[in-house]
């Protein structure tokens, strides 16, 4: 399936071709999970990523099926 990924924080720096308006268009297996998507993008624990799906922080094993786009954030703290 095709999914559009918007990257936040410093994550776009990892993808030189990244376009803020468009995001990244990814082709990924229909059964892919959140963790599969992170692996596909080679994002690791040290990138401190969080994915929000339907306004909730998604678990690593959560499936992406049915989604057309996701936002990947970096964990931040308040000031």
């Amino acid at each position: 399936m095709k999914i559009r990924v918007k990257l936040r924080g410093t994550l776009p720096h990892k993808f030189p071709e990244y376009d803020h308006q468009q995001g990244l268009d990814i082709d990924i297996a229909d059964e892919a999970s959140v963790q599969d998507l992170l692996n596909h993008l080679q994002l690791t624990d040290s990138d401190k990523c969080a994915i929000a799906i339907d306004g909730r922080i998604a678990k690593a094993e959560q499936k992406l099926k049915g989604l057309t786009s996701v936002n990947i954030f970096q964990i931040a703290h308040g000031g």
């Binding site: 936040r8 924080g9 936002n71 970096q74 931040a76 000031g79």
Partner: peptide, 24 residues
């Protein structure tokens, strides 16, 4: 620390906006 060493220097506290909005 990724937050103090990378995120804050490049996006400042404004980095929170997309996340808090994303969480509703």
């Amino acid at each position: 620390n990724p937050f103090t060493g990378q995120i804050l220097p490049s996006a400042g506290t404004a980095a929170l906006l997309g996340m808090v909005n994303g969480l509703g």
